[in-house]
C-alpha cells in the first residue's frame, strides 16, 4: 500500500486516498474480487493495482474498500493545471464545495494563486477535452 497516502482529516480519523493509479490490496478472495469488479474497479495485472474504471457506484466502491482496508477512504482529485493528485481535505474550499470527494479534475492549492488562473484553466481544459 505504499502508493496511498494517509493523512489526518480534521482530528477525527485517518483516510486512505485512492489515486488514479489505483490501490494495492491485500489478498481479497474470489468473492470480494468479483464484487470489486461489479462496482466498477479493474485489476491491472502488471502493476497489481485496482483502479477505478466507472464512477457510477462510488459509494459501493467506498464501502467495499473500507471493509477490506478497515479504514475510511477518499478519492484523489487531479489538478488540471499541474497534474498533481490530491485529496479534497487539503483544499481551502472543501467546506463550501458541493461535489467534493468525487474523483475529478480540480485545481490544487499550489495552483490556486497562479496569475491569470481563468485563462490558464481554459487552456488546460481545452487540451484535455480535445479541442
Amino acid at each position: 500500500m505504499e502508493r496511498c497516502q494517509k493523512l489526518k482529516r480534521g482530528d477525527r480519523r485517518l483516510v486512505v486516498v485512492i489515486t488514479k493509479k489505483g490501490i494495492k490490496l491485500p489478498y481479497v478472495g474470489k468473492e470480494k474480487f468479483a464484487e470489486l469488479m461489479r462496482v466498477g474497479l479493474r485489476y491491472d495485472k502488471q502493476t497489481r493495482m485496482f483502479r477505478i474504471e466507472k464512477t457510477e457506484y462510488l459509494e459501493q466502491i467506498k464501502n467495499v474498500l473500507t471493509e477490506i482496508l478497515k479504514e475510511p477512504i477518499t478519492f484523489a482529485q487531479t489538478c488540471i493545471i499541474c497534474g498533481r493528485e490530491f485529496p479534497c481535505t487539503e483544499c481551502p474550499y472543501e467546506k463550501i464545495c458541493r461535489s467534493k470527494d468525487f474523483p475529478s479534475y480540480c485545481i490544487c492549492k499550489n495552483c490556486l494563486g497562479k496569475p491569470e488562473l481563468y485563462r490558464l484553466y481554459l487552456e488546460k481544459s481545452g487540451k484535455l477535452v480535445g479541442l
Binding site: C91, Y93, I96, C97, R98, S99, F102, S104, C106, I107, L112, L117, Y121
Partner: peptide
C-alpha cells in the same frame, strides 16, 4: 454533470 467547483 456535477456542481461546478469553487476554485473554477
Amino acid at each position: 454533470f456535477h456542481h461546478v467547483r469553487p476554485p473554477l
